[in-house]
Amino acid sequence: MEGKSEIVEVKTFPFPAGFNWAVGPMMERFIRTLAGRKVLGARCPGCGYTYVPPRSRCGQCQAAIAEKDVVELSGKGTLISYTNAHVAPDGNGNLKDLEKPIVVGAVKLEDADSVLFMPVEGVKPQDLKIGLAVKVRWREETKGAVADICCFEPVG
């Protein structure tokens, strides 16, 4: 073995393991309600913290959150942080250049305490600022899927 590495690279071939994660009742209700262009949250009965999407246990005070605690939100919110993404994962462990940068924003919805991370469109990079008022832009046809929310865009 002199002068020869004892380690070899193992040749692999694509071997996809498929998953199908069940989302649970609260998230299901959130997703289905998107069809009617409505955004649901859940207000913790213990401490009032409001989650979007809704969930069944409060991370702040550990109270159980039930179906009755689900609230409808306006779909309007405020940009509290953002970034310009110039590259994206290519699915093979590397990064690829994007044709044009994507703005990813952290949006705090009106009457909610948790934050949604979504693309922000319809705004020039130089006009982006923390505190920008944004709202949901819906896909033309909504069918009760996560993709019904196209992105966020400036109000007005």
Partner: peptide
């Protein structure tokens, strides 16, 4: 039991860079 919506995803196990020894050689 009722079934809730599923979110699909994949995990390509062939994307790992495994290393082996030369013993099999």
């Amino acid at each position: 039991r009722p079934t809730t919506i599923g979110v699909e995803g994949g995990w390509n196990l062939g994307a790992y860079h495994y290393k082996g020894s030369r013993l099999l050689e």
